[in-house]
Design a protein around this nucleic acid. Sequence first.
DNA 1: CGATCTACCTGATGGC
DNA 2: TGCCATCAGGTAGATC
Length: 278
Amino acid sequence: MPELPEVETIRRELEKEVVGRKVKSVEVDGKKSIKRQTPEEFINGLVGAKITGSQRKGKYLLMPLDNGQVLIVHLRMSGQLRRATPKDEVEKHTHVTITFTQGGQLRFIDPRTFGEMFLATPDEISSEIEELSNLGVDPVETPMSWVDFGHLLRSKSQSLKAFLTDQSMIAGIGNIYADEILFDSGLRYDRETGSLTTQEIRRLYRSLVEILHEAIKYNGSTLGDGQYVDLFGKAGDYQSHHQVYDREKQPCRRCRRNDIVKTKVASRSTFYCEVCQV
DNA sequence: CGATCTACCTGATGGC
DNA sequence: TGCCATCAGGTAGATC
């Protein structure tokens, strides 16, 4: 599922593939992906506009336009952005098709329809749209010192996994990378934020940055369901580097003597090693 | 206050 | 073979 590394992979591709292009026409199939405004408002705001940038904040993609608005995309669970040409077969669950004056297309495909696209002004992004204005620091976009990270960590008393996946604290980490980061740092998912020593805080932050960068290097993770693919339909490669996620009952790659355990936390799967994580 | 659950939705999978 | 239940997870909002 798209988390920070997957969204960053797509952002980089969008930079090459759509920035500088002008929108010729937009096709919207129903209201499944355009939820915050009418399809007409969305289409009218896009047609004739040129995409001038490709940014990311947490799991949100933001593409500024030359008309003062910003095209915002959130892929949620199953959303895909795909480069296409008008001749390409239209895949099932294609909800939005943007055709550029140069001929190419950008398509939004989303079987489970949780994802969305909408237009907003920079003012609305920084004040009115709460999910965006409340987003915490993006650890790849805006690195911080481990000391600042420690302050943030101690600002709220909660479990480490809840902290890592709390988008208003650190933006971009979801279920998969939270487990991988916690394993790498040797910390259990249920440790309290206030219980960490200075050394553990440092280790957690180092793991967080390292795992995210490694995952970006391998173009993100594509799970067995194949839901995540990049702009060209290509799967990521980081899943083979997972140490714990989806490795239940398989031997821990670090201690080699314990099997990875799967448990449920807040109705989400959590994988960890009982020996390596304390 | 934090932790947990539920809704949103479809496709894949497993059991019978 | 087909039918039903379960699972996957991002996020908001309800509830404990």
